[in-house]
Computed example of a mutant assay.
Amino acid sequence: MADRTAPVTGRWFQAESDPDAPIRLFLFHYAGSGASIYREWLPLLPADVSAQSVQLPGRQDRLREQPFTEIGPLIDELADEIEAELDDRPFGFFGHCMGSLLGYRLATEIHRRGGPSPVLLGASAWAPVGFRTPPVEQLDVPEDEIVEWARGLGSLPEEILKDRQTLDMMMPTMRADLLVCASYQDDGAPVPCPIVSYSATTDPLVEPSAMVSWASRTPEYLGNRVFPGGHFFLHQETLSITADYVRLLRRRAGASG
Rank of each mutant, 00 (worst) to 15 (best):
P172N: 03
L248G: 06
V49K: 05
A6Y: 11
Y198L: 01
D3T: 09
G32D: 04
E83M: 09
F131P: 05
V206H: 11
G254K: 07
Y104N: 12
G10M: 02
E109Q: 14
A2I: 09
P118Y: 07
Q138S: 14
L161E: 07
L205F: 07
L74C: 08
L161C: 11
E220W: 03
H231C: 04
T69S: 12
V129M: 12
T173C: 14
P73I: 08
D76H: 10
C193K: 08
M170S: 02
S197Q: 11
W214R: 04
K162L: 14
S33A: 15
R39Q: 14
E40D: 15
M169K: 00
E159V: 03
G122Q: 05
V136E: 06
H111N: 14
I71P: 06
P46D: 05
E220V: 04
S53I: 00
V212W: 06
F233L: 10
I195E: 09
A51Y: 13
R112P: 05
A15H: 11
T9F: 14
C193E: 08
S33L: 04
A15C: 13
L167V: 01
P228K: 00
E65A: 08
E85W: 14
L63V: 07
P157F: 12
S213P: 10
S124V: 00
Q236S: 15
P7I: 08
C181T: 03
I71L: 14
L179P: 04
G72L: 03
Q60K: 00
P128I: 03
T69W: 06
L234T: 01
P7N: 07
G95S: 07
D244A: 13
V191M: 04
A2E: 10
A215S: 13
L249I: 02
T9Q: 14
P190R: 12
F227K: 02
V180I: 15
R113C: 12
E65Y: 05
G115F: 07
S50I: 07
A125L: 09
S117R: 05
E16M: 10
G154W: 03
A210R: 04
R225S: 13
G223D: 07
A176R: 03
S50C: 13
D168A: 10
T242H: 11
E85H: 12
R217I: 06
G95M: 06
R64N: 03
E85S: 13
R252T: 00
T238L: 11
S256I: 01
R175D: 01
A15S: 15
T133A: 15
E220I: 02
G114M: 03
A243T: 08
R175S: 02
P73H: 06
N224P: 02
G257E: 10
E159F: 07
I146Y: 02
E207D: 15
G130Q: 01
W41E: 03
G188I: 07
D88W: 14
G95D: 04
L156Y: 01
E77A: 15
P90Q: 06
G95V: 02
S256C: 05
D76M: 00
R132N: 13
V196Y: 00
P22T: 05
I71C: 13
F91W: 07
S183N: 13
Q138L: 09
L161M: 13
P208R: 07
G72Q: 12
P57F: 09
Y104R: 11
D20K: 05
S213L: 08
T173L: 10
P67L: 12
T202R: 15
A210Q: 04
M174K: 00
P208C: 11
M171K: 05
T133N: 12
